[in-house]
């Protein structure tokens, strides 16, 4: 797909690679359990440093991948594009350039637009092309930065812009899973730029 390249504040929507800082599992030496967990985690996991590193602990990766895939790909509820938007915002706030690039691209593929990605990379605090989008983005920032301050009024604000209980749950999941994902990507390796 022909994508307009966005670069802002060190973030980009280009395709990046990622390399681990410590030793990864060599696929030829992987146990049958490790192979199975890799295959269930991601179509390209067997050639990805990220999965080949995490599979040092296959049972933990297995559960993490089950949670991640159920949150990001389950049908119904919050649209997949809005889940990807929340993930991109969280990654922008946490400073995870690699995750931001992957999920910006997924958003663009699903939503067929990238105006909001430019805004999120420029300044997430003012980003949003509609009231609903701004509400999703603000909530993503606040739950990421200050989970101890989240209260009923934050949920009311989301409802005001049309989010149902099920959509709000999906949004919370999409934000929370990137508190997890960003910390792995940031502390175990680094992005490789084209």
């Amino acid at each position: 797909m022909s994508t307009q390249i966005i670069k802002s504040n060190g973030f980009t929507n280009e395709s990046l690679e990622w390399k681990a800082w410590l030793d990864v599992i060599e696929i030829d030496h992987a146990t049958p359990k490790q192979i199975k967990v890799l295959e269930d985690s991601h179509p390209k996991a067997k050639t990805s440093d990220y999965y080949l590193f995490l599979v040092h602990q296959p049972e933990i990766l297995e559960q993490r991948s089950a949670a991640f895939n159920a949150i990001m790909y389950a049908p119904g509820g919050l649209s997949r594009a809005e889940r990807e938007l929340a993930s991109t915002v969280v990654s922008r706030i946490n400073g995870c350039v690699y995750c931001a690039s992957v999920h910006a691209q997924r958003f663009e593929q699903l939503a067929k637009r990238n105006d909001i990605i430019q805004q999120v990379f420029d300044n997430p605090y003012t980003a949003g092309t509609s009231d609903r989008e701004r509400a999703i983005i603000q909530f993503s920032i606040e739950l990421t930065k200050s989970p101890d301050t989240i209260s009923a009024s934050h949920i009311e604000e989301l409802k005001k812009y049309g989010l149902s209980d099920g959509e709000i749950l999906d949004l919370i999941h999409s934000i929370a899973i990137f508190a997890w994902a960003n910390r792995l990507m940031l502390n175990l390796g680094e992005p490789v730029f084209p």
Binding site: L143, T144, P147, D148, I150, S151, A152, H154, I155, D165, I168, L169, I172, H173, I175, A176, A179
Partner: peptide, 9 residues
Amino acid sequence: RLAAGLSAM
């Protein structure tokens, strides 16, 4: 974050 979000709900 999951607990915080669900507590608010």
